[in-house]
Write a protein that binds this DNA or RNA. Structure first.
Lengths: 252, 252
DNA sequence: GCTCCCGCCTGCCGTTACGGGAGGGTCAAG
DNA sequence: CTTGACCCTCCCGTAACGGCAGGCGGGAGC
C-alpha cells in the first residue's frame, strides 16, 4: 500500500517532476518518507491525486484545486459529483463546437462567406468573457495530430476538385429527379438524399442521420444555404430537406 | 471588412494582449496597419484566427499551430476536417472519463476500494505517455465551478447519511420483492429498479436509462459489486440487473 | 563485500502563453 | 479643444512544469 514517486507517476500518467512540484507547493505531499528521504505515497494520497487529475483535466489552476480539496465541507463523493457535472457541461460544449465545424464546413463547400460572429460564437457566447484554453501537449498535440493525419489523409487539389465535381454531378441528378415530378419521399429522391449523406461521409466526416437532418434544417433555415440550392433549381432547398428527413426516418 | 484589435478580441473571445502576442511571434500578423500604426485585421485574418482558436482548444502549442497553418499542402477545408476528427476523439475520451467517474461513485457509495489502475486507467492507458492537461481558467476554473456548486449544492454529513439510509431502505424493500417470488420483470421489481435509478439521479447525477443499464452490467460483471448485493440477499445482483434492464426496455 | 545501474534526492535555470501595467500617442464626440 | 475610450510599444511577472546537474541509496549479481 506504499508507492514510490516513480510508481505513482507511472500509474497516474504524469512525470516524477510533476509530483515533486505538487509536493513543493503543498498540493500533494506524500504521507511519509523512507529513512533515506524517499517519498512514500499511500492509498489516500492516490485518491487525492485522482481528484487532482480530474480537476486539472477540467482546467482548474493548482491553487484552486488545493483550496477545493482542503475544504472540509466537501467529501470525496461531492468531488465526484462535481466532476461529473463539469465533465458533462464540457462535453456539451465540445459537441456545440463540432456542430459549428460542420456548419463552417458546409459553408466552405458551397463558398458561402461567414461573418465574424459565426466564426466565433461558439467561443464567445458561452460566457461574457471566456478566454483561451490549453490542453495536454503530447497526446493532444503531436500524437493525435498524427493520428488524425493518418485517417483524414492529405487532400490534393485534384481531390478537392473531384469532390466539387461529384457534388455538382449529384446536384444535376437531384434536379432531374425533381423535374420528373417524383415527391420528396419517393425512393429516387431518398436514394439521392442518401448519396448526399455518403458524399459527406466519404469526403469530410462521418455524417450520421442525425447530423444529416441537422444539415437539412440548416438548408431551409439559413438563407445563404437556401439560396445556394434555390439557384440550382427553385424549390430545391425544401425538397432536399424533406428528402433527407424521409430518408433518415426510413433507415431508422 | 477591417477590424481593430479590440473588435477582433471581443468577437473572438480573447484579449487584446493575446492578439499582440500572436503578432509578436508571427502566428497572426494583421494584414495591414493604419497610418497611425493601428493593427487592421481583415476577413482572411479572422479565418486564420478561427482555426487558431480551434487548434488551441484542442491543445496544440502555438508554434505547432503556426506550422500547421502555414503548411501549403493543407487548405482551410482540411483544417476543418482535422478539427472535426480531433474534437470527436476528444469527446469520446471525456465520455470515458464520465463513465469512470460513475464507476468511482458507485464504488464510493458501496464502500468498495479501488486499486491504483482503476483510479487512473482513463488517464494513462490512452497513450503510452499521456501527460497533464490545462484548460481555460475563467470559464473552466471559477465560473463553471460556481455554477456547479449552485446546482450540485452542498451536501452535509446528514445529507450523506440520509442517502445511505435511503439506499439501505431500498435494499430491504428490494429483498422483500425477491422473497415474494415475483420475477425480475414483474411490475414490483421494475418499480424498485426505477426507484433505484431515481435515487441516483436525485443524489448524484442525472442517471439515464442507458447509464443505468451500464451500472446493471457492472453489478454482475465486477465481483466487488456483485458481492455487495449478494450479501444483502443471494441472487440479488443478477435479479437487480435483470430488473433494471426490463425497466429500461419498458420505458423506452 | 564490491560493483553496477537504476531510481531517488535537492537545487536551479528555461519555457510557454500570456496577464498586467507604465508611459505615451490617437480619434471621434461634444 | 478637451475628454474618454482605444491604440501603441516596452517590460516585468506568473503558472506549471521540463530538464539537467550533482549526489545519495539499494538490491542484484559477481
Amino acid at each position: 500500500m506504499a508507492y514510490t514517486v516513480g510508481q505513482v507517476a507511472k500509474v497516474a500518467g504524469i512525470t516524477v517532476r510533476t509530483l515533486h512540484h505538487y509536493d513543493e507547493i503543498g498540493l500533494l505531499s506524500p504521507t511519509g518518507r523512507s529513512p533515506a528521504g524517499y517519498r512514500r505515497y499511500d492509498d489516500a494520497d492516490l485518491e487525492r491525486l485522482q481528484h487532482i487529475r480530474y480537476y486539472r483535466e477540467l482546467g482548474f489552476p493548482l491553487e484552486e484545486i488545493a483550496a477545493i480539496l482542503d475544504d472540509p465541507a466537501s467529501d470525496p463523493a461531492a468531488h465526484l459529483r462535481r466532476q461529473h457535472e463539469l465533465l458533462t457541461v464540457r462535453i456539451r460544449r465540445l459537441q456545440e463546437m463540432v456542430t459549428a465545424i460542420e456548419f463552417a464546413m458546409e459553408a466552405s463547400k458551397l463558398n458561402i462567406p461567414l461573418n465574424p460572429q459565426e466564426r466565433f460564437e461558439v467561443f464567445g457566447d458561452a460566457d461574457p468573457d471566456a478566454y483561451a484554453e490549453e490542453a495536454e501537449q503530447r497526446w493532444g498535440g503531436i500524437e493525435a495530430y498524427r493520428e488524425s493525419n493518418r485517417r483524414v489523409a492529405r487532400y490534393t487539389k485534384e481531390d478537392w476538385l473531384r469532390i466539387k465535381a461529384e457534388n455538382e454531378d449529384w446536384g444535376r441528378r437531384f434536379a432531374e429527379v425533381m423535374s420528373s415530378g417524383a415527391p420528396a419521399d419517393s425512393p429516387q429522391a431518398m436514394e439521392l438524399a442518401e448519396e448526399h449523406r455518403q458524399l459527406i461521409s466519404r469526403g469530410f466526416y462521418e455524417c450520421s442521420y442525425e447530423i444529416h437532418t441537422g444539415l437539412a434544417d440548416m438548408y431551409v433555415g439559413d438563407p445563404r444555404f437556401t439560396e445556394y440550392y434555390e439557384k440550382i433549381r427553385p424549390g430545391m432547398a425544401t425538397y432536399l430537406s424533406e428528402a433527407i428527413h424521409a430518408n433518415a426516418i426510413s433507415r431508422a
